[in-house]
């Protein structure tokens, strides 16, 4: 599905280059469930952002569904991203001013669905995630686990092929964490490719493959 070849990412701090990613090559097949692990500062999040096209490497090649991501136009890249990728954050990142329903609906607005399509799609997802009763609440009225549920619902509603999750259970207690991982597992079984960054061995084990990073290198 995607292929990273010799990716370098660095920041200039004064005269020195601070490398975040060094010569990372990685291939992920459709249907995989990959967990990226490593200590703090090893480059996990940066790698995830590169995969999610939110960060550009300084060197290297990135092929996504046969598109050379780094050589195509910004607009095409945005289209590619919009069509195929969903993002889940550690801190959920819901919009505080919007209700659960509206938060889940937001991506659909940007994907150009009309009002009735949006209604049925949101209703489906609410139903599936068992949060119909919460649809009119605001994020600050929900527990962390429920917020992350909404975050994932928002990520999957556009039916992406790839979900990128940045420590999705980092802010949750273990029981909530388990539920979220179960959900990812189900999604993966339905054919969605998942890449997660995690600190937890247990959560990493849920996936089909583990990639270990240390000081910006795959080990």
């Amino acid at each position: 599905m995607l292929q990273l070849k010799n990716i370098f990412r660095w920041y200039n701090s004064g005269a020195n280059r601070a490398f975040v990613l060094r010569d990372v090559s990685l291939e992920i097949q459709k249907g995989e469930f990959v967990s990226i692990m490593g200590p703090s500062g090893s480059g996990k999040s940066t790698l995830l952002h590169v995969l999610g096209m939110m960060d550009e490497p300084n060197e290297g090649q990135y092929l996504f569904l046969d598109n050379n991501v780094l050589n195509i136009k910004e607009k095409q890249r945005a289209e590619l991203y919009k069509k195929h990728i969903g993002f889940v954050f550690q801190a959920y990142h819901l919009i505080d001013e919007l209700t659960v329903y509206e938060n889940i609906e937001t991506p659909l607005l940007y994907h150009g669905f009309n009002s009735s399509e949006r209604k049925s799609m949101v209703a489906d997802v609410l139903d599936r995630f068992n949060i119909v009763g919460k649809k009119d609440l605001f994020p600050n009225q929900l527990s962390g686990g429920q917020q992350q549920l909404v975050g994932i619902a928002r990520a999957v509603i556009t039916k992406p092929d790839l979900i990128l999750a940045d420590e999705p259970t980092g802010n949750l207690n273990s029981k909530q964490g388990e539920e979220i991982m179960d959900l990812f597992k189900t999604l993966n079984q339905e054919g969605v490719t998942i890449v997660q960054v995690t600190h937890s061995e247990k959560n990493a084990a849920v996936g089909s493959r583990i990639v270990n990073l240390l000081d910006g290198r795959v080990v």
């Binding site: 945005a78 991203y81 993002f87 990142h93 919009i95 001013e97 940007y110």
Partner: peptide
């Protein structure tokens, strides 16, 4: 800012 970020991530131009 957070709102802007979230919207961009969910596909806003």
């Amino acid at each position: 800012a957070k709102e802007v970020g979230v919207r961009k991530v969910t596909g806003a131009t």
